[in-house]
């Protein structure tokens, strides 16, 4: 009887883990679908780009500052890049 219970417990654990993983997959799929459909509904019409077109709204609003900062942090820290290429370029690291 005990053995049966153990088997039952294991089976139910397996079952629940299958249910669990399929649930996770379902959630992931739903999130991805929502994201994708959300992306297509996100955004603006061309005539609504007044603010986005401003220089300060560019993702890199000052490329010169960004280049200078990248050079400093590349030579002083163990990380580089991420926003743009983090490649070589100087013997400072």
């Amino acid at each position: 009887m005990k053995a049966n219970k153990a088997v039952f417990n294991t089976l139910s654990q397996v079952n629940s883990s299958i249910v669990h993983s399929s649930k996770v997959k379902l959630i992931l799929l739903t999130v991805m679908t929502i994201n994708l459909s959300a992306c297509s509904s996100l955004g603006v019409e061309p005539w609504e780009r007044d603010l986005l077109a401003k220089k300060e709204m560019a993702l890199t609003s000052s490329p010169v500052d960004a280049a200078l900062d990248d050079h400093i942090y590349f030579s002083k820290e163990a990380s580089s890049g991420g926003k743009s290429f983090g490649g070589g370029g100087c013997g400072c690291n």
Binding site: C39, L42, V44, E48, L51, M57, G81, G82, K83
Partner: peptide, 18 residues
């Protein structure tokens, strides 16, 4: 990947391998 959210907001996501 960059995405305009609305008239006031823009977002960017990058992955890099070096």
């Amino acid at each position: 990947f960059t995405q305009v959210i609305n008239r006031r907001m823009i977002t960017a996501f990058n992955y890099s391998y070096s």
